[in-house]
Amino acid sequence: MATIARRPAPQPRAHPARPSGARNRSRGARLLGALCGSRGIFWQGVAAAVALGASAVVSLLVVPADAAQGDVQRLMYVHVPAAWTAYLSFAVVAFASAAYLRTGRVHWDRLAVAAAEAGVLFTGLTIALGSLWGRPIWGAWWTWDPRLTTTLVLLLVYAGYLAVRGLPDNPDRGARWSAVVGLVGFLDVPVVHLSVVWWRGLHQPATVLRPGTPTMAGSMLAALLLAVLAFTLLWAYLVAARMRTERAAQRTRRELLSAPVRRGVQPVAPVADLVATAPTPQGAGSHG
């Protein structure tokens, strides 16, 4: 949460999130609402695209390649930020899951599911990019190193999180079950990070997120931080946009459930179809 609130994205103040009760909210909540509003999401997307473009140029063309590894080391500028955003995702999933279990408020569940989907994406990307990096440098696409294994466990736990959601017919129950998975699954994140310290493995120890100074040249560290910023912006965009679709889907579902069935009105498709089918022109509904 705090990470979203810290995003330096533009904040259309007079543009509160749609849910009512927007009056007396704290500044943080208002900023969050602005970021999750349509304009906020749009500008987050723009900021992410610009930052990612700049980061790609810097990582591929500007910063010098590592002397020992050569250009292969440039994979670091995508592998490490992907891993960072995966950690971030699961921290947010755990936080939001705990908040949902405590308060039962649906917006925490929306945040959790949005972050979990982003987390699965970034974890998968971390593993794939690590594999591409490992082949030329280590000499293997994959090995059962503790860091690799625990990261794969992380991916599977959060894939399970998403699968558990759809299991019960009652979405509230699905949200509660998955919140438990999201909370317990987070225990693997410190294990992943410290696996290189706790156990012998092939994966090298942390370079930046470790006690002491980063063991990396300044220019490379700067390029890495830029990449981390860019990935984080994209992450914020993906989470905010995903929360918006979840909110829309929930609203549609609610209205459908509350709408009295009338004779003479065409039956409406189930909410899943309404939300998932290809878009129809505005107003092309049953009896516009």
């Binding site: 889907a249 409406v268 089918t277 129809t280 509904g285 049953s286």
Partner: peptide, 12 residues
């Protein structure tokens, strides 16, 4: 798709 669904609901 959300917008389309909302539009259909509004029509309804």
């Amino acid at each position: 798709a959300d917008r389309a669904a909302a539009a259909r609901l509004a029509a309804l």
